[in-house]
């Protein structure tokens, strides 16, 4: 686990991208207060997933509205799955773990 940023960098219900060791990770702050982290680039056509709309379950890529489960990374619209990361909040710090 390593700190990659602060929770207040991410508005409630939105996502932001963090660069971590040459990888781009999209971190989403759900409206129930929890966070999720996935690969930042859409596997379909390279769209920026952090710009997508989310709810408690899924993220929609802003380019073609493909959907993925935020927790498992599983595609909900027939695309390849997303890589998802362990992520936690500790005192307003975003702690990123390994790929899960």
């Amino acid at each position: 686990m390593r700190a990659i940023g602060f929770l207040d960098e991410i508005p409630l219900g939105e996502g932001r991208t963090f660069a971590v060791d040459g990888e781009m990770v999209a971190v989403f702050r759900l409206r129930d207060g929890s966070v999720r982290a996935t690969q930042a680039v859409c596997p379909h056509k390279g769209g920026p997933l952090a710009d997508g709309q989310i709810d408690l379950k899924q993220v929609l890529c802003p380019l073609h509205l493909n959907a993925w489960d935020l927790t498992t990374g599983c595609s909900l619209s027939g695309q390849p799955d997303l890589a998802v990361y362990d992520v936690h909040i500790d005192n307003d710090k975003i702690l990123l773990g390994e790929l899960s």
Partner: peptide, 13 residues
């Protein structure tokens, strides 16, 4: 309007 409203979502691209 929000923190990082205009922050890039693909910082390494």
């Amino acid at each position: 309007a929000t923190p990082g409203q205009f922050r890039t979502s693909l910082p390494l691209t």
